[in-house]
Structures are given as structure tokens and as C-alpha cells.
Simulated assay, not measured.
Amino acid sequence: MRVPRFDAAGELVHDGPLIGAALTRVLASGRFIAGAEVDAFEREAAGFLGARHAVSVGSGTDALTIALQPAADRHPGGEVVTSPLTFAATASAIVRVGLRPRFADVDPDTLTLRPDLAAEATGPRTAAVLPVHLYGRAVDVTALRSAVGPGTPIVEDACQAFGARDAAGRACGTLGDAAAFSFFPSKPLGALGDGGLITTGDAELADEYRLIARHGCREQYRTERVGFNSRLDALQAAVLRVKLARVDQGRRRRAQIAALYAARLDSVPGLRLPADAPGHAWHAYTVRIAGGRRDTVLARLRARGIDAAVQYPVPLHRMAPFADPRPCPVAERACAELLCLPIWSGLGDDRIDYVAQELRDALRTAPVA
């Protein structure tokens, strides 16, 4: 049986006709950059999240970069405290605005930034704290805010967490001072290409973000500050408007899939399952395999047609562009053990059963390193 990690075509089964109509509408309008479609998506996304302001941009990486720029303006050459267990775009955005990442280790259960360690990493050079809602699980931003103090800006990396909520039911993207989302096709809200969004409750920040993303111009040919070109095009906005209506339904189905995996893999020797949490978006279902067997198990699964993946094999503080000698032992161990199983809202129960059975078989036969 073939089980892809994500099936973009399968995700469009229900939305295909509506997306076709939306694209036709944009093509007929002749307006492909900015305009009513993009404005409507920003309003609808903000309304869905409960955010006061939403600024669409060209990608999740751009969203992170632009969201951090005001902090870089206030603290040139400063530091951003963040997690080492995430995609490189998190740290790249920090470096692109002239700041340096300062890594703090993650919690062994949630794999998200530990508030107490983040507080230890903050200091006079801290420009912001950048927690990552890893795999769609909300960081406890309330505890983080309490630990680092009210004067430290918190920018959420919510690129994997559109539609996720914290234990109090608040949407990721409304928990900090600002947040960045990605609309890469495999994300909980995915476009048919790239796209991103910044949310904030601060009108002045929203105005600054929009200015940066539009070449520093409020009116054409009059630049007020250095910016760059980062725009969500109207075709992608139209697609996202259609898919936005099904975000909660997709999240509920992924939660069902996570529960099915948990039931089928419970008490398997040598396997640690991800902890569930209310409001989890389940962008990824990531198990942990100890004993140096992860890569052997991965090879077995792929040979059996299962597109499992390692996300992420190396913590950021051990990568050359972001090198930091301070250890983060929990993240380092996790990177040697993590394995992402296929999950998307259209994944059928037969494939879930197949993945679970093959994983059990692979673990039974894989030798301990």
C-alpha cells in the first residue's frame, strides 16, 4: 500500500469545485495583486482567529521576518530567544533582520519552548521571544509571558498551527504581541502555493508590518522606510477563503487520526507517542523511537510504501549559520528519535491501520544500536 505523508490532491476532493469557481472569479476580475480578494481574506482570517489585525504576505518565512523587524529596529544587534527544535526558517528570519538566535531547550513532553529556560536565556540584549507552536501544539504563552516578564515582546511562530488553540480555548495567533502563519500546501490551512499571514492586536504594529511588506510605501513611489515586496496574490487568497471554511473540520479529522494512531500504537515497546492536548492542530503526528533504531525503522517503512519523515534531524543550534555552543540536551535527543507518520484530513482508516501495523513490525525486528 502506498501512503504519502501528505496528499495535496486528496485534500481538494471536497473543495475542488468551489476552488475552481473562486479561481475563475479572480481570472475574470483581472486583479491578481492585492484588491478585494486579498482584503476579504485578511478580514475573514482575522475573524476566524479572533485577531484584531491581519496582514497577508508572500510566505511564512516572510511573515516571521517582517513580524520581527520592529523588535530589530528597537534592539539592533540584539537576541531573540527561541527553540532549537524547529525548521530553519525560524532562525533564518531572526538573522535576516540583524538579530541573533539565543536557544533555550524544550520540554520533553510537549517539545515546545520551556518557559523557565526561556526566562534564563533573556537579558539586556533580548529583543523578543519567539516560541514555536511545534507540529500544531500550542505553547503555553501565558506561562511564558509570566516567566519572561511583561516587557519582553512575544512573537508566535504559528506557521504549523493555524486553527490550533491553547488550553483556555484561545487561538494561536492571538496569544502574543504578534504571530506568523504559513500557508504552504501541507499546513493546516494550505494554499496552492506559498503564502503567509501576520496577526497582531496592535494597530501601529499592523501598519508597520504592512508598510515593510509593501516596499515601505503607503502611496506609490513614496518610500517611508526600507521594505521589500511580500504580497499574497489574489488567486491564493481566493483559494484560502474557500479552505478557511473547512479548517475546523480538517483539524477535527486530524485529531481523530491522531487518536486512531494512539489506540493502535499504545504500549508498543520502544515507542513514545506524542502527548495530546485540547486544540492541537496535528500538523504532524510525531512519535519517538529510542535505542538508535529510528533510521532503521524509517528505512523499513519507506520500503513498504509509507512516506514517514524525520522532522527535524538536526537541532538549529548545531547548524553552522546559527551555531551556539550552549547545550540543549532535550532537543538534541529528540532530533535523534523523532519520526513523523503520515497525517492529513483525507487519510483513510485502512491506511492508518497499515501504517500502525508496519511500524509495529519494524520495531519488533529493528536491532538496538
Score class of each variant (00 low, 15 high):
M1S: 09
P4R: 09
R5C: 03
V13E: 15
G16W: 06
P17I: 05
P17F: 06
A21K: 09
A22C: 03
R25P: 00
A28C: 06
G30E: 11
F32H: 01
I33T: 15
A36S: 13
V38K: 09
D39Q: 09
E42S: 14
A45S: 05
A46D: 04
A54S: 10
V55W: 13
G58C: 01
G60N: 14
D62M: 05
D62A: 15
A67Q: 10
L68A: 12
H75R: 15
P76D: 00
T82D: 09
A88N: 13
A89C: 02
I94R: 14
L99I: 07
R100A: 06
R100N: 03
P101R: 14
D105N: 12
D107L: 10
L117M: 08
A119H: 10
E120L: 13
A121Q: 12
T122F: 04
G123C: 06
G123W: 11
G123E: 01
P124L: 13
T126S: 04
T126H: 05
A128G: 07
P131S: 02
H133L: 10
R137Y: 08
R137P: 03
A138Y: 11
R145I: 02
R145S: 06
S146K: 14
A147M: 11
G149Q: 14
T152R: 15
P153E: 01
A158F: 12
Q160L: 15
D166V: 04
G169H: 12
C172Y: 01
D177C: 06
D177W: 07
A178N: 08
A179G: 02
S182Q: 04
F183D: 00
K187H: 05
G190A: 10
D194N: 06
G196S: 10
T200F: 09
D202S: 04
E204W: 08
L205E: 00
Y209F: 15
L211Q: 12
A213D: 01
R214K: 03
H215W: 04
G216E: 00
C217A: 11
C217K: 11
C217Y: 04
R218E: 00
R218S: 02
R218I: 00
Y221G: 02
R222A: 11
T223V: 12
S230P: 10
A234R: 14
L235W: 03
Q236D: 10
V239Y: 14
V242H: 13
V242D: 06
V242M: 11
K243Q: 12
R246C: 03
V247R: 12
V247K: 13
D248L: 10
R251M: 05
R251F: 01
R251C: 07
R252A: 15
R254W: 08
A255D: 13
Q256F: 04
Q256T: 04
A259P: 03
L260R: 14
R264V: 02
D266V: 02
G270D: 02
G270V: 05
L271M: 04
D276S: 15
A277H: 10
A284K: 08
T286C: 15
T286H: 06
R288P: 01
I289M: 03
R293Q: 12
V297C: 03
A299K: 14
R302K: 14
A303W: 01
D307C: 07
Q311N: 13
R318V: 01
A320I: 03
A320S: 14
D324M: 05
C328Y: 10
A336F: 04
L338V: 08
L341M: 05
G346W: 02
I352A: 00
R360G: 01
L363R: 09
R364A: 15
P367H: 04
P367C: 04
A369W: 06
A369C: 05
